[in-house]
Design a protein around this nucleic acid. Structure first.
Ligand SMILES: [Mn+2]
Ligand SMILES: [Mn+2]
Ligand SMILES: [Zn+2]
Ligand SMILES: [Zn+2]
Lengths: 147, 147
DNA sequence: TTCCTATATAAGAACTATTCTTATTTGGAG
DNA sequence: CTCCAAATAAGAATAGTTCTTATATAGGAA
């Protein structure tokens, strides 16, 4: 699982600056660091992982700030919560339309892209107004299968 | 959201009896009541909801038994955990292949069926061995939109 | 620049969902 | 009926997340 290209990371940080300006939110060091942490990796980290990594550079950062900031970033549309099999919320700064393969053994979440995006199914109208569609494939990743 | 047909409920309970016999698990009153609760409704209840409802008829039932039983039922393939947007695990005794519409405001989960089931995408092979595919559509249900 | 204040943060308590521990009960085989 | 491995009740423990309160600070105004 290779890292996000530096130019892509820089672009994502630029979106954060814009989003803060547009919504009137302050551009705090904590927001920068927390978003940077999500933006630079593509392994869909959970809040605790982000907390530990940010704390290495910012030893006083609190759990609350991480959770609160992730919620703000989600509201601003800069990250999305990924549904997992169990418990913890996981976050993704990849804004491209894509889907997820979830390993039910180790929890690893990998992106995949469909050649043709599925359209919202017809019957949905009678249930509500659809806003997004996500395909989730579950199974065992190669790493787990070989152990 | 209408109830599950009594004949369907009876059939599901029959599967439970068979599954217990096959796997050597005991057919306890608690298992009956807990599974019955999930089998008779299609609103994908969470563990606490099931606990409260079962407790009305069985006042001494414990949280632990509900959680433990739901896990057993999942292992037996009689219920499945539904991924939600936030926190609590939700359970589903509808064994037909189907997908979910999740209201991001009230959390209601509704079933929908696709005319043609999507096949496992090609690129998945390089990520792992796929075992299931689920489409999740998120949006606002009619009930929430009108309030 | 300095001052002001609404917004954001740190620290840790509180809360909520879930799992664990231990003593007791019970389904179902024999 | 008897027996005992499996299951349960009760409540403590744990883990993830949110809340409370005192303090700090981003960023606009003077
Ligand atoms: Mn992703
Ligand atoms: Mn369902
Ligand atoms: Zn894995
Ligand atoms: Zn709703």
């Amino acid at each position: 699982m290779k890292a996000v290209a530096p130019s892509e990371v820089e672009q994502r940080l630029e979106y954060l600056r814009l989003a803060c300006r547009n919504t009137g939110m302050r551009m705090t060091h904590q927001r920068m660091e927390i978003f940077h942490e999500v933006a630079q990796c593509n392994e869909h980290p959970d809040a605790e992982t982000i907390f530990k990594r940010v704390r290495e550079r910012m030893p006083t950062v609190s759990h609350d700030t991480v959770y609160r900031t992730l919620a703000s970033l989600e509201e601003m549309g800069l990250v999305r919560r990924v549904e997992t099999v169990a418990g913890r919320a996981r976050y993704d700064a990849n804004g491209d339309t894509h889907h997820h393969f979830v390993c039910t053994r180790c929890g690893q979440i990998s992106d995949f892209y469909l050649e043709q995006e599925p359209s919202i199914p017809k019957g949905i109208e009678e249930l509500g107004r659809a806003e997004s569609l996500q395909v989730q494939v579950r199974g065992i990743c190669h790493n787990c299968k070989n152990n």
